[in-house]
Amino acid sequence: MKRILGRLLVLGAAAGAVYALRNYFESSSARASRGDVQLTLDNGASVEPSSAEAQEFVDIARKVLEIAG
C-alpha cells in the first residue's frame, strides 16, 4: 500500500512538472519581443514602449485578431 502511494506521489509530481513546463513554454512563445509595438506620436516622435507595456498591447491585439477571425 505504501509503495503504491509513493508511486502515485511520484506520478503526480511528474504530471505537475510537465504541466508547469508546458505553461512556461506556451507563455514564453507568446511574449512580446522588440519591435512588436511601434507608436508614432502626434509630435512626430517614434516610441517603442517598455516590454511590460508592449506585452499589454500584444495581448489585447491578439484578442482583437481572435475576435475578428
Binding site: D36, Q38, F57, A61
Partner: peptide
Amino acid sequence: IARRTARENGGSGFAEARIRADEG
C-alpha cells in the same frame, strides 16, 4: 493604452500605432 503611452512619452496623443502579434 496607445494614448496613455503617448502621454507618458511626452506627446499629447498618438498619430499611428502598429502592433504585431503571431496572428497578424
